[in-house]
Write a protein that binds this DNA or RNA. Sequence first.
DNA 1: ACCTGAACACCGTTCAAGT
DNA 2: ACCTGAACACCGTTCAAGT
Lengths: 183, 183
Amino acid sequence: MRADAKRNYDKIVEVAREMFREKGYDASLDEIAKRAGVGPGTLYRHFPTRENLIDAVLQSWVDRVNDTADKALAREGTDRDVLLAWFEEYVALISQHRGGPAKITSAMDDPASPIRPKCQVLAGANDRVLDQLRGRGALRPGVESVQVCRLVGGIATVADQSGLEQSAVRPLLEVVADGLLHP
Amino acid sequence: MRADAKRNYDKIVEVAREMFREKGYDASLDEIAKRAGVGPGTLYRHFPTRENLIDAVLQSWVDRVNDTADKALAREGTDRDVLLAWFEEYVALISQHRGGPAKITSAMDDPASPIRPKCQVLAGANDRVLDQLRGRGALRPGVESVQVCRLVGGIATVADQSGLEQSAVRPLLEVVADGLLHP
DNA sequence: ACCTGAACACCGTTCAAGT
DNA sequence: ACCTGAACACCGTTCAAGT
């Protein structure tokens, strides 16, 4: 990659990260190009779709996902506490930007989505946490990891779109946790 | 209302219902006006926002909501069966059009949404079903109706956005039901 | 090889001109 | 009183012309 191309690429990603934080994942690509000081054509060759740009912005995110799961695996407490703490972190991870919960949750199932590999990292992290609980006999039989991603992702999506406080999200996560753990 | 105004109004609603069925709730308003044979200005005076148009399309929907709840209240079976059957009908009611689950679920909490009154009818219907189960001592303490709307609405939203089959939705509803019913 | 920016198609919205 | 349709602002996307 030529030096000026790399400079443009990096600047676009930097500006996109800011804009997504301010306006959510549906921020105007035109304005991102403008603020990055490049023509719209430059943005489009580097990132043919919006999802390609999101993918670049999520570069360091996968590390944070794995770190968070590691901490969850080392946590002390009842099975319910461990599961709920992980759920809250799961919600936080995908709710970083407005529109994130919906985008990330639906990309998990979409083979055509450029961000799917990164979403699968989150699904894998969720898998590891559930497996530990399964090993302790804490989970009901038949609980699949992908279902948990959809349940918690659904709650995060509603919270995101309704602007719910974290205190309103917690009881929803508790219902799901109680439905997953052995009675 | 003048005769030609009423004729235009009705035609727009009729075409909108078709378009929403085909393309979902984010169908082009421009094309709706075009197919209805009116200028864009005419559509905008009758329906200043997209939600006003959706509200008109949902006119007969509230009756169907109440009928569905009545049937759920009269159903035989275990508490779990009754609750799950209602959940499946709840999902079907809000998933009629693409984008419906997200729109209806978030409008419940939004005092500024024109469709809020109609969404409240659904919330009220859900209330009645839950109250019956509460009367039988089936529900855990502290379960609020609005939380159930958010949980089931969240599942429907994910299913809508990921194009999930009904057979993939069922186990998610079961987790929520198990989390709500007495262990 | 890469960038620019004009040009295009589409969308929602407004409003002056008509009947 | 109501309708029309041109006009505008904004968006994503393409591509011929430049360096």
